[in-house]
Design a protein around this nucleic acid. Sequence first.
DNA 1: GATCCGATGCAATAGATTTGCATGAATATT
DNA 2: AATATTCATGCAAATCTATTGCATCGGATC
Lengths: 164, 164
Amino acid sequence: MAAGPCTVANNLYCDQAMCEQCNYARLLKNADLEATANRLHVMEVVGGNNCPLTAAEIFHTISRTQPINQVTVYRILELLVEQNLLERITIGGRAAHYGMAPNEHHAPHPHFICTRCAAIDCLSPECLSVDMENLRKTFSGEVERVEVRVEGICRNCLKGGGKK
Amino acid sequence: MAAGPCTVANNLYCDQAMCEQCNYARLLKNADLEATANRLHVMEVVGGNNCPLTAAEIFHTISRTQPINQVTVYRILELLVEQNLLERITIGGRAAHYGMAPNEHHAPHPHFICTRCAAIDCLSPECLSVDMENLRKTFSGEVERVEVRVEGICRNCLKGGGKK
DNA sequence: GATCCGATGCAATAGATTTGCATGAATATT
DNA sequence: AATATTCATGCAAATCTATTGCATCGGATC
Ligand SMILES: [Mn+2]
Ligand SMILES: [Mn+2]
Ligand SMILES: [Zn+2]
Ligand SMILES: [Zn+2]
């Protein structure tokens, strides 16, 4: 079953997820990457969506208007994650999801996954604060990233019973 | 490449991860599940390890002493996760990992994954506190679980350069 | 023009998990 | 006792996701 994209309207959800401010070509150039049509399409699809997408979803979205190979999508996604333009988000299902990596326009934020209908939503950065002082002080390794995932039942499923 | 289990000794790591206090047969009975030999083996392997394991790792561990089918392991894992005896932990790689679910002997805790050597470790419950007040107050759905995953470079990799 | 390189396509493969179907043991029903 | 039901398990095949190997092609470089 595919995760329905962002079906749950809620004042907590992050409106920074969709990006009208990012200049994708410039982001690519800054990372020393050629701004090919395919890479721009991937960036536009991911940045233009308000919740993280799977490689398959990205592929199908692009395919509606442009010819592209699925392997190309995988390779571009891997490259862009490596270069910190995109972020790979692990939702719990089998497929990885991709969203904009934190940058000047996108603050890191937790994600919510409904255990009933599998809907995914970006939560606002402020809705949940993580105190890492204790960790930073005592952890002997180097912390690069903290990913927070909230699981539960979405508003839709609570009232309507949710799709399916 | 397989994640090396728990190579990083650190005072932050959770010593509650391994379980000598849980009575697996009783846990199964309480969940109205027959305490079959295979189910007990799965519980023992997971509970006896100090970090979460993949289905393949659990299967191979059991197989060293008992005949069991890999599909059986998958089915048992799914069942025990459903019944909240085990917890499915999404590490980022392709394979899911499994650990004891929170119970009287096991507090929920974050996990650390080394981005260099893929080592996984259970962090102590206290090392990182999450303030969910704001979330609970404003979130219109129901929160069941909050999973925190810390990514970074482990102590081993920082000094030695890490395996591989 | 010859050569090199990076991006892409296509086919095959790999890895993880799930599904379909059969069996056999235990329990319940007639 | 015979029959039916249930459930755990095994085995084979299928499915889903992602990766790898190899060919091509256009642009940059020599
Ligand atoms: Mn997001
Ligand atoms: Mn753990
Ligand atoms: Zn839902
Ligand atoms: Zn490491």
